[in-house]
Design a protein around this nucleic acid. Structure first.
Length: 817
RNA sequence: GCGGACGUGGUGGAAUUGGUAGACACGCCAGACUUAGGAUCUGGUGCCGCAAGGCGUGGAGGUUCAAGUCCUCUCGUCCGCACCA
């Protein structure tokens, strides 16, 4: 019989579907595993990255099913988002139509891969039911003060007339029309993720054993906790007068309080309140205002290219020296970090130095470079001994930091504070294809939340998607509504939510079974049973945003009482990219390989085998058509050589001692593969080495003819391979073993017992020869035999040392000529 | 600039704790079977060398009987963040 993948694969896919083979059990007393690959965006077609992602996840899911676990392995669709609207703009398709057509098509593609997904929990995040539950959470979060609306500085595309997410800004320009973006102040809904900054940082410790170090570090840096001193710089009398006594001063933050005596100027962000006040009240000349306006309107990229600033004709008093210090506006001061104002120490900060040099500002050194430090031109940013620092002269930088902070606190001049780079998460999008934010603007009551019984606030189907403006805002009637509070005329919020909101809780939704599917998003019991996700598999590109947001939602839901754990994903596996000709596969480069074509040519099993064999899952995978062919040949051999195997429903009993050398070796290889498989599935995830082990075992089986050994070998190898190449394994196992072999197989120790061992022989650590010795030979006998074998290399030399590493090697150390 | 990952044959990659470097596969070479093969099977294949032997895990040192693995320095590639005060 010939290996015919298309026939076999169709047969088993149908079988699995008819038998609901992969639906999890409702019995919560069973041991469970929750295996999750990140759900796809329905872009239209599957790409190789998807195939890799789902092949890895499927391997885990199938392995744990074999091991007797109740496995949840769901799939769904992250189906809101810009690409649907872009397709509408480009091709005139309705976003909804486009999305659900794509889902239908990709569903079919996924089915041909033979992935063991639970189908009964599948959903798309654009489903109204999902929107309804999500809007409910939004209301809860608003009640808890975790959602608020405020004016914020946003990325604005002047051409497309919309706000863009940071990730939609490519090198300072709009990703769609390439127009340079500007910062614009607008109303915006924010999640108060900063309230959880410390928890998000601290709980990374819980993830140390299960998450890649790289991801933990990226999250840590993103949160960006830094501790330092915050204090107020007070204006001198003249400046206060100038400001009509509207401001006494402003706060600054520093992580280097030891350099405080070196402050020679201070700088405000162009967006700072004081600056705004001065502009609005005519306190600045036109040239200055023009310069500040230019700073505000320049893109962030531009702003980084060169430093610029203007003096404000204001002065503050140094809190310790009482010196008078000029106040500048500088483009490098960011409004959204710290207090939007800095104390500048040009002598010990490169950025401050550059600015001071450019504008000829005073530089005052206060830290002596260490003797061994190389003193170059510019700022000395290392630690050292303080001078020019009054009572703190002679202190070491490190001591000085705590001493100065203590002094500020004692004198009530300032306080220790912690700052984060993490900002509150702005979720408003002026977009159609997203979940509406469930709020209402009422002239009488102000901003009012919808009532839960009115949910979902669904999208209207009849919209014009032009790419300009907000389609919901432009819709003639959709936004008109009654105020949930006073019943008067009101308008709906027309912003929709960032799609990262949907992906922040989809893994919880999968825990809900049919029994309460419509009624509630999930139950606490179901979450308690299925969560956390045991293996979460996805691309490294989600290392920060998605994974941080999902962690945030989990903590919020915990505090809202929906669940009882801190972290959603126990083990995270970040897969590498799929490359071709050294570059990421992409349509624009024309180096894609179409999964459909691959499956129809070789079958899903070949695609899956190649993808898992070509590289460890965390590494980049270089596509190789020849190697795909090789994977196919292996499966063909696996199918052909089953002719050596007889049908049975029990593992053959084999008298190991009676076997020939080749037969013993084949058994050993088979059981080695079994041992390695367990390690790989549970600890190492290097499926490539496991597959190599199976290939070695196959090669060894082929060197002998004992049908018991063949049969035992297939019994075990098919079980190991089933999670990787399920169709061929189910087919062969059905024919030969009635699938009795798909369960935990026991390792038999006797196959690893050997009569002789081959030892490596080396002289001075250099390998020279090898020899075979009996397992029971004494060390002395081994050394003697080794010396004889190594005669040629040790003749006439003095033996200094003899080292025997049991079962490995003998090393003779010699001296002299 | 800061942080992280990684450098092993012609190629993808093996080598749990320091212990026979190159498993497994691709490619290539040779042979067999074939009307034919881009099918299948068998054998070979790190580099230099006729051989003996020598050299080999980015480079330079070091520790050790023994280093791909540990330490120091250095070069290169990739990724993330970035005027963060």
């Amino acid at each position: 019989m010939q290996y015919n993948p298309s026939e076999i694969e169709k047969k088993w896919q149908q079988f699995w579907s008819e038998h609901r083979s992969f639906e999890p059990s409702e019995d919560v007393t069973q041991k469970k595993k929750y295996i999750l690959s990140m759900f796809p965006f329905p872009s239209g077609r599957l790409h190789m990255g998807h195939v890799r992602n789902y092949s890895i996840g499927d391997a885990f899911a199938r392995y744990y099913r074999q091991q007797g676990y109740n496995v949840l392995h769901p799939i769904g669709w992250d189906s809101f988002g810009m690409p649907a609207e872009n397709a509408a703009i480009k091709h005139g398709a309705h976003p909804k139509q486009w999305t659900y057509d794509n889902i239908a098509y990709m569903c079919h593609e996924l089915a041909t891969l033979g992935l063991s997904f639970s189908k009964e929990r599948e959903f798309a995040t654009s489903d109204e039911l999902y929107t309804k539950f999500e809007q409910g959470f939004i209301i809860d979060m608003f009640d808890q003060g975790l959602l608020y609306r405020k004016k914020g500085l946003l990325n604005w595309c002047p051409h497309d007339q919309t706000v863009l997410a940071n990730e939609q800004v490519v090198e300072g320009c709009c990703w769609r029309c390439d127009t340079p973006i500007i910062k614009k102040e607008m109303y915006q809904y924010y999640f108060k993720i900063t309230q959880y900054a410390d928890a998000l940082l601290d709980d990374l410790k819980q993830l140390k054993s299960g998450w890649p170090k790289q991801v933990l570090t990226m999250q840590e840096n993103w949160i960006g906790k830094s501790e330092g001193l915050a204090f107020t710089l007070l204006f001198d009398a003249q400046s206060q007068e100038l400001l009509n006594h509207n401001s006494k001063g402003f706060e600054v933050f520093t992580t280097r309080p030891d350099t405080i005596y070196g402050v020679t100027y201070t700088a405000l962000a162009p967006e700072h309140d004081i600056v705004t006040y001065m502009i609005e009240n005519g306190l600045l000349d036109d040239a200055t205002i023009a310069a500040i306006t230019a700073m505000k309107n320049s893109s962030s990229v531009e702003r980084q290219k060169s430093k610029s600033g203007v003096p404000l004709n204001l002065h503050v008093t140094h809190p310790l020296t009482q010196e008078t210090i000029p106040v500048w506006v500088a483009n490098f001061v960011l409004m959204d970090y710290g207090s939007g104002a800095v104390m500048a120490v040009p002598a010990h900060d490169q950025r401050d130095y550059d600015f001071a040099t450019q504008y000829d500002l005073h530089v005052k050194p206060v830290i002596k470079p260490r003797h061994n430090a190389s003193v170059e031109a510019g700022a000395y940013t290392e630690s050292g001994e303080l001078y020019n620092s009054e009572r703190f002269d002679g202190y070491d930088s490190i001591e000085a930091q705590s001493a100065i902070m203590a002094y500020f606190e004692a004198e009530q001049l300032g306080k220790r504070v912690t700052n984060y780079k993490l900002k509150d998460w702005g979720i408003s999008r002026q977009r159609y294809w997203g979940a509406p934010i469930p709020f209402v603007h009422c002239d009488t009551c102000g901003l009012v939340m919808e009532k839960k019984e009115n949910l979902p606030i669904a999208l209207p189907d009849d919209v014009d998607i032009t790419g300009e403006g907000n389609p919901l805002e432009n819709h003639p009637t959709w936004k008109l509504c009654r105020c949930p509070q006073c019943g008067g005329d009101a308008t709906r919020e027309c912003d929709t939510m960032d799609t990262f909101v949907e992906s922040s809780w989809y893994f919880l939704r999968y825990c809900a079974s049919a029994c309460n599917w419509e009624r509630e998003p999930f139950s606490k019991e179901q979450l308690a049973y299925w969560m956390g996700v045991d293996h979460y598999i996805g691309g490294i590109e989600h290392a920060i945003l998605h994974l941080l947001y999902a962690r945030f939602f989990t903590k919020v839901f915990r505090d809202l009482g929906y669940l009882d754990f801190d972290e959603p994903f126990e083990k995270l596996l970040t897969q590498g990219m799929v490359l071709k000709d050294g570059a990421k596969m992409s349509k624009s480069k024309g180096n894609t390989v179409d999964p459909d074509a691959l499956v129809s040519q070789y079958g899903a099993d070949t695609a899956r085998l190649f993808i898992l064999f070509a590289a460890p899952p965390t590494q980049e995978l270089e596509w190789n058509d020849n190697a795909v062919e090789g994977a196919y040949r292996f499966l063909k051999r696996l199918y052909d050589r089953s002719s050596h195997v007889y049908a049975t429903t029990t593992l053959p009993k084999i008298e190991h001692a009676t076997l020939s050398k080749e037969q013993k070796f084949a058994r050993k290889k088979v059981y080695e593969a079994l041992v390695r498989a367990e390690e790989v599935y549970t600890q190492r995830y290097t499926f490539n080495t496991m597959i190599a082990g199976v290939m070695e075992a196959m090669n060894a089986l082929n060197e002998q003819e004992n049908s018991d050994v063949w049969t035992e070998g297939y019994w075990i190898l098919l079980a190991i391979l089933e999670p990787i190449v399920p169709h061929i394994c189910w087919e062969l196992s059905e024919q030969l073993f009635e699938r009795c072999n798909f369960k935990p197989n026991t390792v038999i120790d006797e196959v690893f017992e050997v009569d002789t061992i081959t030892l490596g022989l080396s002289v001075n650590g250099k390998r020279r020869s090898e020899m075979e010795v009996g397992v029971n030979e004494t060390q002395a006998a081994i050394v003697n035999k080794a010396k004889t074998a190594l005669e040629k290399w040790i003749e006439g030399k003095v033996i200094v040392k003899e080292i025997v590493v049991p079962n490995k090697l003998v090393n003779i150390v010699v001296k002299g000529s």
